[in-house]
Write a protein that binds this DNA or RNA. Structure first.
Length: 313
DNA sequence: AGGCAGGCTTTTA
DNA sequence: TAAAAGCCTGCC
């Protein structure tokens, strides 16, 4: 349909992915904070994603759920459109897909198989969460960006987190033209954040987290914090190393393990998960059953509860 | 040693 | 006004 008109000098390709992949659910899952809903036809960003009356795809609930996003990853930005029927259009070459986007979307493993294997018919709550939230995947996000983002996330809701991260990118990130020639700000490296003035950092509205962000930027620059070394550790060792960093407690360390280091068994316990465990698993949560993918199932529960908080309560 | 109260910036609903 | 994908410090 009108998507044809989007074809430009850059090469578009249509992917067929016969596994869980729902980009709208991923965007709202709370693991990433810089996915931006855009109009697939007009190429105009639409913050919050309200209406998509002109959505080209034959996507069932395109009226409610955006079907097209742009996703900053390092120095690149991916444009992806859900065409429905397991088809997705992306703006990039085959090489870029294989080297960047395929690993980023964690497309080498089957989330559908993981869901089905764990379902023994006894956990009706988890089954409902999985059915409702299937399509979520755990992205392979940059460890530095993930670390700073989840330090910023503490004790705040998601709109506030997104705002601070965007302010930080505007203040310190490189301005880059994406594959469509549009400008965006990359997530700033530690040296860029460490170089910010006190006033510039104040404008990022980090609150008391400002000291945490500045200090980890300085410590990574000086070498007293070595994220590359932490990347090579197993989950337990990484957890210990992360919780030793100023501003990182058990919850944030678990999020970094899961979303930044891809330790899929990491199980972040935040205010939502506390409520879920108390309400749905009063006899105790069956960690063994969902190992080694506790983090994936945590995401299904988290998103399910957060998106249906009123109806489930 | 390990647990717990109090404080913390700012935004959001 | 309370709550928000919590953590640090100080006290016991």
């Amino acid at each position: 349909m009108r998507l044809r008109s989007l074809r430009r000098r850059i090469s578009n390709m249509v992917l067929r992915i016969e596994d869980d992949l729902d980009i709208a659910k991923i965007a709202e899952s709370g693991q990433c904070f810089r996915w931006e809903a855009i109009d697939p036809c007009l190429n105009i960003s639409n913050e919050g994603g309200s209406e998509y009356k002109n959505a080209a795809a034959s996507y069932d609930d395109a009226q409610e759920n955006p079907v097209s996003y742009r996703v900053p990853v390092g120095q690149n930005r991916l444009y992806i459109t859900d065409l429905g029927n397991d088809n997705y259009e992306i703006d990039c070459s085959d090489d870029e897909y294989e080297s960047i986007w395929k690993p980023y979307l964690d497309l080498d493993i089957s989330y559908r198989a993981i869901r089905k294997t764990a379902d023994d018919g006894t956990d009706t709550f988890m089954k409902a969460a999985c059915d409702d939230q299937q399509g979520i995947r755990i992205l392979r996000q940059d460890p530095w960006e993930t670390t700073v983002s989840f330090i910023i996330s503490q004790n705040r809701n998601i709109p506030a987190i997104k705002k601070s991260i965007e302010l930080l990118c505007e203040a310190a990130g490189d301005e880059i033209r994406d594959c469509r020639g549009e400008k965006f700000f990359a997530f700033p490296g530690p040296e860029k954040i460490a170089a910010l003035s006190e006033e510039a950092l104040d404008e990022c509205k980090l609150g008391y987290r400002k000291d945490y962000v500045r200090r980890i930027a300085e410590d990574v620059c000086s070498g007293s914090v070595d994220l590359a070394e932490i990347e090579r550790m197993n989950e337990d060792d990484a957890f210990k190393a992360l919780t030793g960093i100023y501003g990182i407690g058990p919850k944030v360390a678990s999020c970094i393990n899961l979303f930044g280091l891809h330790h899929l068994n990491a199980f972040p316990i935040d205010t939502w998960i506390k409520r879920i465990l108390a309400a749905e698993y009063p006899e105790g949560y069956p960690y063994e059953k969902y190992a080694p993918y506790n983090g994936i199932f945590q995401q299904y529960m988290f998103a399910y509860y957060r998106n249906n908080a009123i109806s489930i309560k």
